[in-house]
Amino acid sequence: MSYLETAAEFYSEVAQTPQVGLCCVQSSPLQLPGLKISPQMQEMNYGCGTTVHAAELANDPTVLYVGVGGGLEALQFAYFSRRPGGVIAVDPVAAMREAATRNLAIAAQENSWFDPSFVEIREGDAFFLPVPDASVDVVAQNCLFNIFEPADLHRALQEAFRVLKPGGRLLMSDPIATRPIPPHLRQDERLRAMCLSGALTYEQYTQHLIDAGFGQIEIRARRPYRLLDCASYGLQEPLLLESLDSVSFKVAIPEDGACIFTGKTAIYTGTEEFFDDSNGHILPRGLPAAVCDKTAGKLGALMPKDILITDSTWYYTGGGCC
């Protein structure tokens, strides 16, 4: 049995018998005015963060959600795209599709604004998304892509890139590892399916996005997720997993490399009213300007005594400069 078959079998089990404690099912989902989440749907909230970012969902987008789970985030996306087929939810596991269909029917009874036609559930997987090229505004996945081996992760990211319109956005939430996960854990298919052993480091994870063609990556959140202890996982020292929420844009990669925003700012501290690097960056004296990590490095090297570069906050919501 391949690791993907193990994952499919595992999620067929938890679709029929929800497991409290798997991923972050005990966390509270995103609260939105007029949105009610049933206990059945909350029990199947198999994710490590959130992919629903209101700022990315203006103008009635078409959303493709990969790995429907219990339907919670599909419902949240439908809150912003209130039309038939506004959300397309794809899952290869029949039991999960059936559970999501039941949960969305309950949601229609509890939310007067929601109609089940707003979410179209389709059979499919991350490697063969059942939509045409450049046909959706948003692709989203929560705690799924970390299950994949690196080669399969690249395939999934390329497929997401294919179906996105130019300028479209890939919204992801996945565990990352604070150091490489040892081989004996990476080879444990059950732990991989449980989102505990397939995580990449932050550097590896973002490089995969760049390799797939995404020219801009924005980190929405980075926070502790799980601690793998020594006794349970055969480690010499505990290994911290973190949850990373990101938005990646289908835009061209600049000649000097992709732009990754992690919340860094550049502050001009010199004697002039402003600093102009003649490359599109104007820094008024004393005012923080959000910049991508690449630009932060360039500005810090250019004027190390007159430009202060602040640390990454790991929380960025736009407005910066490449």
Rank of each mutant, 00 (worst) to 15 (best):
Y3N: 10
A7E: 14
A7L: 15
A8P: 10
A15V: 03
T17E: 15
C23Y: 14
C23H: 15
C24I: 04
V25D: 14
M41P: 03
G47N: 00
C48T: 02
A55L: 15
N59E: 14
T62G: 03
V63F: 08
L64M: 03
L64K: 00
L64H: 03
Y65K: 07
G67P: 00
L75K: 00
Q76F: 03
R83V: 03
D91Q: 05
P92R: 00
V93G: 02
A95L: 02
R97C: 02
E98C: 08
A99I: 00
A100N: 05
N111W: 07
F114N: 02
G124R: 00
A126G: 11
P130K: 01
A134V: 10
S135T: 10
S135M: 13
V136R: 07
V136Q: 06
D137P: 09
V139Y: 09
V139M: 06
A140D: 01
Q141G: 14
C143R: 06
N146E: 14
L153H: 12
A156Q: 04
L157H: 06
F161C: 12
V163R: 01
S173L: 08
S173I: 09
D174R: 12
R179Y: 13
L196M: 03
S197G: 06
A199Q: 02
T201V: 08
T201S: 11
Y202P: 07
Q204I: 08
G213P: 00
Q216L: 10
R222C: 09
R223D: 13
L227Q: 06
L228V: 04
L228E: 01
G234D: 01
L235R: 03
Q236C: 11
L240W: 10
V247G: 07
E255K: 11
D256K: 06
A258I: 00
K264S: 12
K264L: 11
E272M: 14
D276N: 12
D277Y: 03
L283K: 05
R285P: 09
P288G: 04
C292N: 05
G297P: 03
L299Y: 08
G300W: 11
L302I: 04
M303V: 11
I307W: 09
T310N: 05
D311Q: 13
Y316W: 07
G318W: 06
C321W: 15
